[in-house]
Amino acid sequence: MYTVYTKQYDSPPVDRREILRYAGIRGEVSELEILLDDCLLETLNKLSYRVCFCQFPLREEGDALDLGFAVTESRDLKRHLAGCHHTVVFAATVGMELDRLIARYGYTSPLRALMLQAIGAERIEALCDRFCEELQEEMKERGWKIGSRFSPGYGDLPLETQSVLFQVLDCPRKIGLTLNASLLMSPSKSVTALMGVSNEK
């Protein structure tokens, strides 16, 4: 018996420098700060921060690794999960409205679309960080810790892993996240990843 949990968060703190970095700006550009403020204001009530996740025990099966929902032969993933006894699989999204805003400004202001794109990139990372911090706190109580995130498509873990992951996490139903035929996620500002769980010492 396994259970997929869902969480919904309030907006995590905004890292302005990071957004500007995603927008391709490497220095101080004062006139863009006003635009950034404006775009942040516009997205304020349009983003939702949802995560669904599930935990599985890990089991080695010869050369392969049983993830509890799939068996993988990815060497990079095995290395990533070395020394771990569980894995947490999660999917996170900031929702559809941002895609709509970006598409809308594609017609009227590519500049704004670019900035919103950058905001989305920063927001989804911030959401993942927030979720992982919280999970880390919970794990600590059991003397466990979580490792860093590893996503389908990294190293030799095939992108096709997305399909299995979506099936297991029931992403469309849990957080409104879907996968299209070319394995692209919609809403676009979304992340899926696996993390290892190991003992603290």
Binding site: F166, R173, T178, L179, N180, L184, S186
Partner: peptide, 14 residues
């Protein structure tokens, strides 16, 4: 009948 799990166009490819 439940949802297909695919997003309709234009934000998906269905």
């Amino acid at each position: 009948i439940g949802p297909t799990g695919r997003m309709l166009k234009p934000y998906g490819d269905f």
